[in-house]
Amino acid sequence: MKKINIKEFYQTKKEEFSLTLVTNPKTLDNVIVNKYLNRPGLALGGYFERFANERIQILGETEISYLQSLKDEDLYDRIKEIFVYEIPCFIVTKGLSVPEQMEYLANEMNIAILSSRLQTDKLYHSLRKFLEDVFAPSQTIHGTLVDVFGVGILITGKSGIGKSECALDLVERGHRLITDDVVKIKLREDVLMGSSSNDYGHFMEIRGVGLIDIEKMFGIQAARIQKRLDAQIELMPWQDNMDYERIGLSDNFVDILGVKIPIIYLPVSPGKNVSVIMEVVAMNHILKTYGYDAAKVYTQKLQQDLQRKSKIYNTLLDDKE
């Protein structure tokens, strides 16, 4: 299970969410364990059934004004009741200040209160987006990710089959490299996003040459930071008895983090220009997305032709004198 330390969250994100710390720094030891946010309106009102205490608690203008409307001793008791639960932290929006008793109890019971200058709605959305991204299911895959005519193609295959060389050829043809060798894939809603697993830049290893820097060599137009994954191409050595796709009517799919993407098993043999085939795969993918399937159109034409011919034949056959 992934966790984010509140201290780390506060230190790295305080500018982005314009945060300041209300309580003392030793309250920052808690951890955030899920991507959800909660507005604890009902809990403040005293209703604790199904109180989502493990989420970050957001206090907006309504919550603060409700707290201020309570009598001092009621407020103290209620806050104490809430603070018994394990809560990662509270974030107060619009730069509002929390009641003194709440601040005192938070310090006593080690629960961080942060204050954000952003409006509740704005904070809610941007914080949610950030948490979605952090807690998104992810996976690393051995392969190379390229953007060919706007189609994100993941090239996989055994070591030494020529993934990098193929990507290099594509870059030379004006396509863009996202990352070579280790692709980090994240699930964002229903879309797979691929990027590099580090921020070193766009480096690549070419056997016999060593490391090269694609961005320096081919310019910024050859590099891209992330790309949606649209299709996978698995390069494999040519095998005589393997059943390769010939028409393209039946699509194969591969499951990555629960999302199905089309996969093409591409045999490679010396002298074969794989990058041209990659371009063709990309263009075919675009055509299919727009509703044109070459394999279907061709087979339909063939069928119509066959039907027409058999009609003529039958008519001639039936025409007995």
Binding site: H142, D180, S197
Partner: peptide
Amino acid sequence: TKYRSEFRIKKDDMEINGKSIMGVMT
């Protein structure tokens, strides 16, 4: 790479191909 077996290395939640130099350095 001298061996025929598949070889992977795992660190935290990252798993890479141990026969690839970029992978191992990543």
